[in-house]
């Protein structure tokens, strides 16, 4: 028996909005520690890892580890029917091939039940070791989204270079070139507006902007985004989910032929 009750149902709504266009079908894994997902896009260039820890749920019952295959587009359609202030409960009986989403209005005067068929998805998980990164960038998530959006109107790849001066996002295309430099700025009145660069050593990597733009759909989840870079390995773009966990997007770099 599985029954997960999330008072801040809007978090789950936002999570689905941020991954439904990147990944079509995925397994949600439920265990005593929490509700998680790891899935790659169809080209295996990007990977999303979600964790919602069990403590973040008002009620978390998971009798045994269970993996539920879902079509994320259909799941998003059902979650769109939940109000932003609704409590969302996810229920599944053992051995059942459906999952039920229950939406309760804050005043408990409206309760909705949506039942969705589960899918069989055989997906192995990639082992992603915790790594020391050469550069870690923490910046306002809206700022990062704006940069990716602006640069993608000029070119389709971005070179992200981190030096002690700051971080530079560069692109070039048919109409010309664009460079955006963000300097470390911790003298702000609100911490979430700071741009922090931890850079043990300089790094420069090239990525496809369309994936980064897809990742920034998670912007509503967090005021800040953490971007971890190391030469020669995928970048990690992480949005914390309010004391519950995180959503991490990994993107493989492009290299010189």
């Amino acid at each position: 028996m599985l029954e997960l009750r999330l008072v801040q149902g809007s978090l789950l709504k936002k999570v689905l909005e941020s991954i439904k266009d990147l990944v079509n079908d995925a397994n949600f894994d439920c265990s005593a520690t929490g509700f998680s997902l790891q899935a790659m896009d169809s080209s295996h260039v990007a990977l999303v890892a979600l964790l919602l820890r069990s403590e973040g749920f008002e009620h978390y019952r998971c009798d045994r580890n269970i993996s539920m295959g879902m079509n994320l587009g259909n799941m998003a359609k059902m979650l769109k029917c939940a109000g932003n202030d609704d409590i969302i409960t996810l229920k599944a009986d053992d051995g059942s091939d459906t999952v039920t989403f229950m939406f309760e209005s804050p005043t408990q005067d409206k309760i909705a039940d949506f039942e969705m068929r589960l899918m069989d998805i055989d997906s192995e998980h990639l082992g992603i070791p915790e790594a020391e990164y050469h550069a870690i960038l923490i910046m306002p998530s809206a700022e990062f989204a704006r940069i990716c959006k602006d640069l993608s109107s000029i070119g389709d790849t971005v070179v992200i270079s981190v030096t002690k001066e700051g971080v530079k996002f560069s692109t070039r295309g048919d109409i010309g070139t664009a460079n955006v430099v963000c300097r470390q700025n911790t003298t702000v009145d609100k911490p979430e507006e700071a741009t922090v660069i931890e850079m043990p050593e300089p790094v420069s990597l090239t990525f496809a902007l369309r994936y980064l733009n897809s990742f920034t759909k998670a912007t509503p989840l967090s005021n800040t985004v953490t971007i971890s870079l190391s030469s020669e390995i995928p970048v990690v773009v992480e949005y914390k989910i309010a004391e519950m966990g995180y959503i991490r997007f990994y993107l493989a770099p492009k290299i010189e032929e």
């Binding site: 080209s43 295996h44 192995e124 493989a252 492009k254 290299i255 010189e256 032929e257």
Partner: peptide, 14 residues
């Protein structure tokens, strides 16, 4: 042109 790598070239299935 630059070659787009994939996640599978960095991490293996566990």
């Amino acid at each position: 042109a630059r070659e787009q790598l994939t996640m599978r070239q960095f991490y293996c299935f566990r």
